[in-house]
Write a protein that binds this DNA or RNA. Structure first.
Length: 294
DNA sequence: CGCCAGGTTAGAG
DNA sequence: CTCTAACATGGC
């Protein structure tokens, strides 16, 4: 099948992104084999299975596994990959700011080229955030696995099953009786279905939010029940790559700051805000590298 | 048993 | 605007 290349900046380290992709054995929406990752997506009405690996120089190699290439597929898969690994953010200004920061200077050196590994699908991003609310991450992955196995479209290639995150049209038809057995709490079940309904009724979509000022996009997201500041910020960071988006209430972020600032307790929200003042405009990447420090 | 984990909501101050 | 209690569920 056909391959093509996607160029990336010098400040890009694929192996660090792969590390993130490999972080849970329950991850089901992509498959890592050594130094490459395989994923199924729906583009232009087709199901496209592709594999990404490091190419020569500043390039990623993308290989299509179940279809031949044409201009449309190539454009859409390229776009997906660029969003997935946040290829288009210029990190030079962030690195120049971070170099002068006591906490970040060490981290950006250690994890140079690490980027936000995102969720180009807004629905996936929001539901995944809801699943992660107030529970430990391994359990969130387990919930996602069950949810995807039950309700996602799939494609079997060479005996390997690949999934596409469940569609809003499907999820909006579910009830508690579908999700509680998967060990969703009533709250997660209600939020998940409510988010799907918001998509189906077109109260929200990626297209509607694209290009909006940060505050407006956040406000639109937070109109949905179950999407608070943490969830909205998470989606703005992971799906739209707003550089100023960061989850203020995030427990992991609090733990990272506690460690870096050598506090004997977790910081208050006010202390987090204060610590982040110096990262203005780059809160998303400050958060990413702080998370990575844990 | 207690406490924490990638929170949100509704209600009070 | 900020703080708090209630909600909910698994894991250590």
């Amino acid at each position: 099948m056909s391959s093509f290349l996607v160029s990336v900046p010098r400040e890009f380290e694929f192996s660090l992104c792969l590390e993130f992709l490999k972080r849970s054995p329950h991850e089901i929406l992509h498959t890592c084999e050594g130094d490459q990752v395989t994923k199924l997506i729906a583009v232009a009405g087709k199901r496209v299975l592709f594999r990404v690996s490091q190419g020569k120089g500043n390039q990623l190699k993308v290989k299509l596994l179940n279809t031949t290439s044409n201009a449309t597929i190539r454009r859409d898969v390229t776009q997906y990959v660029r969003e997935w690994f946040d290829v288009d953010t210029d990190l030079i200004p962030f690195y120049s700011m971070a170099a002068r920061d006591q906490i970040l200077s060490r981290l950006v050196k250690q994890f140079y080229g690490y980027r936000v590994v995102g969720y180009p699908d807004l629905f996936e991003s929001l539901v995944w955030a809801v699943l992660g609310q107030q529970i430990n991450v391994p359990f969130a992955y387990l919930l996602k696995k069950r949810f995807v196995e039950q309700h996602a479209e799939r494609l079997v290639v060479n005996g390997q099953t690949h999934y596409i995150f469940p569609y809003p049209a499907v999820v909006s038809q579910l009830t508690d009786s579908n999700l509680l057995p998967l060990q969703f709490s009533r709250q997660k079940s209600r939020y998940t279905i409510g988010i799907a309904e918001a998509f189906v009724e077109n109260r929200i979509s990626k297209e509607k939010l694209r290009g909006l000022p940060f505050a407006d996009a956040k406000e639109m997201l937070m109109r949905i029940k179950g999407v608070g500041n943490w969830t909205a910020s998470y989606a703005l960071m992971k799906t739209f790559h707003y550089p100023e988006a960061f989850p203020l209430e995030d427990a992991g972020l609090h733990n990272a700051l506690k460690k870096q600032l050598r506090l004997d307790r977790k910081p208050t929200l006010e202390e987090v805000r204060k610590a982040f003042r110096r990262y203005k405009g780059w809160e998303a990447y400050a958060t990413l590298y702080l998370w990575k420090s844990l």
